[in-house]
């Protein structure tokens, strides 16, 4: 083997290694989806809490503070809802429980968003 051959082989091995690393990362990303469904609570654009939605979990109440004051988020049995909120129309409270990945509860005046992460079966929902 000439010196050029060795350089070529080294370069080829490097590329192959890079390929393996990417394959490994693919595996990692798909393994990620096996994690429990999570919900994120955002107030005025800042993530306040990330919660696991455990299907067999018990009740959990969380006090948060939106733009218009306190609100209570309830988590139970893999579902989440806005239990109480300090806002005039109570749209977010009336929406009640959500559990499907991609679902969202929005409290406009309080600027609170509860979003269930994960791959939704649709790209968006018209409502």
């Amino acid at each position: 083997m000439t010196r050029a051959d060795k350089v070529l082989i080294a370069a080829v091995l490097l590329c192959a290694l890079l390929g393996l690393v990417t394959i490994y990362r693919h595996f990692f990303i798909s393994a990620d989806q096996l994690l429990p469904t999570q919900a994120t609570i955002t107030v005025a654009g800042k993530v306040l809490h990330t919660i696991d939605l455990d299907p067999v979990g018990g009740n959990e109440m969380m006090q948060i503070t939106g733009r218009l004051g306190p609100a209570t988020v309830e988590v139970a049995g893999g579902r989440i809802r806005m239990r109480e909120a300090n806002c005039p129309e109570q749209i977010c409270v009336k929406q009640s429980w959500i559990q499907a990945p991609g679902s969202t509860i929005v409290c406009l005046p309080g600027e609170i968003i509860i979003h269930i992460d994960g791959l939704a079966p649709v790209d968006a929902v018209t409502r």
Partner: peptide
Amino acid sequence: LCLGLLVVGVTVF
């Protein structure tokens, strides 16, 4: 062998 790996690597990349 290495060329084969290269093809795999580039495709995945």
